[in-house]
């Protein structure tokens, strides 16, 4: 097995773990943790493809990963702000109890 295939398999495993966490947990913050894990797995793919690409000096995959990290940070800030706001209104972070959009 080539090194790139190993990294891709690890990234696929981390993506699946994150997806399982996002789909099975009740707590909204744990769902966000699962989404962060999925984004990180995608970043690992980007960096691995950059490292084993024929022209790494073009920096395409590296730039993609850096911008992806910045966008993930913005997503985490807004997502956690939403969770705190919902907790203030509904006094719960349990997704099974969040079944109304009206406050």
């Amino acid at each position: 097995m080539t090194p790139l295939a190993g990294y891709l398999l690890v990234a696929a495993l981390m993506f699946a773990i994150g997806l399982a966490g996002a789909l099975t947990r009740r707590n909204a913050i744990l769902v966000l943790i699962g989404i962060e894990l999925m984004l990180n797995a995608a970043n690992l793919n980007l960096i691995a493809f950059w490292r084993y690409s024929p022209h790494p000096e073009a920096l395409t995959g590296m730039m993609f990963a850096i911008f992806s990290i910045a966008v993930a940070a913005a997503e985490a800030a807004v997502g956690l702000g939403l969770v705190i706001s919902i907790h203030r209104h509904a006094h719960t972070t349990d997704l099974d109890h969040m079944n109304r959009m009206k406050g």
Binding site: L19, A20, L23, R26, L30
Partner: peptide, 15 residues
């Protein structure tokens, strides 16, 4: 519990 009601479906999808 910490897992949602339809955790089995989520696990199957992830697998």
């Amino acid at each position: 519990g910490v897992y949602s009601r339809n955790w089995l479906a989520g696990l199957v999808i992830a697998a």
